[in-house]
Design a protein around this nucleic acid. Structure first.
Lengths: 215, 215
DNA sequence: TAATATAGTTTCGATTCGAAACTATTTAAT
DNA sequence: ATTAAATAGTTTCGAATCGAAACTATATTA
């Protein structure tokens, strides 16, 4: 019954355009992507930052201690390491991030957002259009949208054979050890609540099972 | 009661990561955009086409008789007309589109996809990851996702003051005149069912009301 | 008839991007 | 222990995107 009502409401709201297909999904995604790029170019121009640089900066800000490296950025953005290396150099020379050598592995560079970088990020994210959209949606629609996108993201990552970045809350290696205590079965390390909210390169969905990078 | 069950299911499926916010939406959109770019680069490489060129080609294929011009592409992609002009030249020299002068207005160029362009589009769209995602979703989730994205798209277009491209089925200027007959109140022209499925520069949602471009 | 607006092109310089060659460090194999 | 292979990151180069601005041509308005 409820399903019937839903369909009826949909019929009215969309009028006679009731057919949905993957082409439509593609069209929406593609167009949103265009607009997002365009928006990023405008926001970036104000802040003297290119869209891709803003993306990289945001990732570094959101990444956990296993993931805040040039390689992590490379996988996240889906670009080549050479390209990313240049982007990071620019971010560093602008004083938005700081590079430091890893203590254990001499090949690895650690990336951290500076105070200036943080200030800049708070101005740019979330973008006005996304904030507006969010506020215009009721709670059900918010969840439906975010869940749908999450599915799409997972699928895209799977299809393209890419690492599925995510937070501990959805990771099969994570186990709860107390009120605000967590433990990563992969790295065998304790994690704080704050830790578990950051993005991880090693993230694997509960169903998923592949060979991890980290021992 | 049903709402309660829904929330419970969500709680389980997401485990303890139940908080949703615009930052999360931004993060998903941004990442999907990255992956889409990355995917477009791969698909494009196979077809000897840059991502932006594929986008433009797809738009031209999807645009109606009021919208298949360089200006239309410019608005759709959110780029400058100079940039788009170059992209279109490349598409034409590759034999994927054909430019022809408009019969009524000497300034306007009409763009049409050639047979070769069409063949290429059918190979590329919808992209594998989007098709896979689509097939993995049940009907409710499909609608929820598409509806959410539609809302996001509308909001982004509004926020950025951009023309809201869309099909007649959702346009306030469209009226039904028979089983498969339609009429555009803006251009005062009859439209076939096929016509009404194409994207239009002049599209305005039923609530929306601004000054149109066409007389 | 002149001024202005619109559609589109061309040119230029800045930036992004991938490919490939490169250095340095770590891990695996012999 | 020594060598080979793998990994992390940088540098260099050429191709492509992009916006800004100057430009041509046509249409509209004053």
């Amino acid at each position: 019954m409820l399903a019937l009502i839903k369909i009826f409401v949909k019929l009215i709201s969309n009028r006679y355009n009731i057919f949905m297909n993957p082409e439509l999904l593609h069209e929406y995604i593609e167009r949103i992507s265009c607009l997002l790029d365009s928006e990023a170019r405008m926001v970036g121009a104000d802040l003297n930052l290119q869209p891709v640089q803003l993306n990289a900066l945001n990732y570094i800000n959101r990444s956990n201690r296993y993931s805040n490296t040039p390689q992590g950025v490379t996988e996240y953005l889906g670009l080549t390491k050479g390209t990313v290396s240049q982007t990071l150099s620019i971010l560093e020379s602008n004083g938005l991030i700081k590079k430091s050598p890893d203590k254990k592995d001499g090949r690895v560079v650690r990336l951290n957002v500076t105070a200036a970088g943080n200030k800049l990020l708070r101005k740019a994210i979330p973008s006005p259009s996304i904030r507006n959209t969010w506020e215009g949606l009721n709670e059900q629609d918010q969840s439906a949208l975010v869940d749908g996108l999450k599915q799409l993201l997972l699928e895209m990552q799977k299809t393209n054979g890419m690492q599925a970045f995510g937070i501990c809350g959805t990771c099969r290696f994570n186990s709860k050890r107390g009120e605000k205590k967590f433990f990563c079965e992969l790295t065998q390390e304790n994690l704080t609540l704050k830790d578990t909210e950051l993005l991880c390169r090693e993230h694997q969905s509960i169903e998923q099972e592949t060979t991890p990078n980290v021992v």
